[in-house]
Amino acid sequence: MFRRNLIWLIAILALALPFASGAEEAGPKAPDFSLRTLDGKRVKLSDYEGKVVLLSFWATWCAPCKQELPILQRLLDKYEKEGLAVLAVNIDDPKTVAEVRRFVADRKLRMPVLLDGDSKVLGRFNPRHSLPFLQAIDREGRRAFHHTGFTSGTEKELEEQVVALLGSGKTEKSESP
């Protein structure tokens, strides 16, 4: 029975791969979602069509996230007028969610902070739920590049990618095989 199931799994993967090579140049549409912000507003991803959006999934216990968020704030300060938006989606669980508001206020973060309490939205972009996870979305609401994790040096590459997206005015293909 196990061997038969394994054959099914391999067959499915083999069937799926040809579609990768047939993928069109345009990136796929990002799934829309609606979440509540820290200050009680409702935000939909589709409200930001026409802007380049950096969707950053983070938690207060995640050290690389704490390093990445101020960098995203600096990018927002620099490129907001050119059409950049940053949405910081928090996935803290009940043990630590009380920390979120103070974390944001103490670090002078001014981007909208969205609360994904049951991490459903994270699951749609990154089903492994590893953090930090950054998904860029172009002006037409399509997925562009994504980053898992954050290491020093990423900030320069990230700025180049954001500038390219802001300047292109059209969809960029995600870095896929």
Partner: peptide, 29 residues
């Protein structure tokens, strides 16, 4: 316990031995 390596935080189980992990993450369409 909870550890962050290479910029990614994961809740690791206790372990003795050798482990190889590969993660593919891409947009097929």
């Amino acid at each position: 316990g909870l550890k962050c390596i290479g910029g990614v935080c994961r809740d690791f189980p206790a372990f003795t031995g050798a482990r190889l992990e590969a993660v593919l993450h891409y947009d097929l369409l």
